[in-house]
């Protein structure tokens, strides 16, 4: 079993693709972490090389399948451990079928796996367009914290920037400590790394939170209780950041 280890960047991944073809060595898994090695495993450390990566991306531009570069960038936002392998397999399928648009060949395992990976990300983006909750800070900007499965902060920014075009806001991915900021004109993404982010909320916030909780409770029809359905749509792992679910977490 062949394993490639690389630095986790897009350029690094394309270098892996190049090396796989050049050395005729097709990896079973690709990862950016140190892995436990089995007795029969061959592990290769791939050195990121811009030249090699450029040849791969040029090649992809000449393939019949369109938008691969864009899709790969999107897929790299995934929080799944096997994402590099899934992307590699898809890129390989695209190159192997240079004269064919393979993007909709759902009977092909690597195409289907890649399309599922993309769907997980875009679905989560769609979900968080709804599940993000802002709170007003004392300084007048709006702050939201959330912890998504995939790294989607930057993908959410255009949506909120056009919706709240004259409202300064910050979206904070607590899991990765990444902040998406918008000041009323421009967006920017900041990686806070290990720094602590502190926000002072305005005094009125607690009142709005209670109003929202009241609404959430009142609009429910008790006779039609369907807890399973609710959890399907609103997974428990997202509850931590939703004010309407705070009452329940407290009562656990």
């Amino acid at each position: 079993m062949i394993t490639f280890i690389f630095d986790g960047t897009k350029i690094g991944l394309f270098t892996c693709v190049f090396d796989a073809y050049y050395e005729r060595r097709i990896p079973k898994t690709i990862t950016d972490k140190q892995v436990q090695v089995g007795f029969y495993d061959n592990v290769y450390q791939i050195e990121t090389d811009t030249q090699k990566a450029k040849r791969v991306s040029d090649c992809l531009k000449n393939c019949k399948t369109i938008g691969v570069l864009k899709d790969v960038s999107l897929a790299l936002k995934s929080g799944r451990d096997d994402k590099f392998t899934v992307i590699f397999n898809y890129v390989k399928t695209v190159i192997d079928n240079k004269n064919l648009d393979v993007s909709k060949n759902f009977a092909n395992e690597s195409v289907l796996a890649f399309s599922d990976l993309i769907k997980q990300i875009t679905y989560e983006v769609h979900r968080f367009k709804g599940f993000i909750r802002f709170e007003e800070s004392v300084d007048g900007y709006y702050y939201a914290h959330f912890s998504p499965d995939n790294d989607i902060t930057w993908l959410l920014m255009p949506h909120f920037a056009s919706r709240f075009s004259n409202q300064a806001f910050i979206i904070h991915d607590v899991k990765r400590n990444v902040l998406g900021m918008y000041d009323g004109y421009n967006s920017a993404q900041v990686n806070a790394e290990d720094r602590q982010v502190t926000v002072y909320l305005s005094d009125d916030e607690i009142n709005f939170k209670k109003l929202w909780q009241t609404y959430y409770k009142s609009v429910n029809i008790k006779e039609r209780k369907n807890h399973r359905l609710m959890k399907n749509f609103l997974p428990v792992r997202y509850w931590e950041h939703l004010p309407e679910k705070q009452v329940e977490i407290a009562s656990f």
Binding site: H126, N220, I221, K225, N226, F233
Partner: peptide
């Protein structure tokens, strides 16, 4: 866009 879901499973 759905913003939340109530106990009865409605959005």
């Amino acid at each position: 866009i759905c913003h939340s879901f109530t106990e009865d499973g409605r959005c």
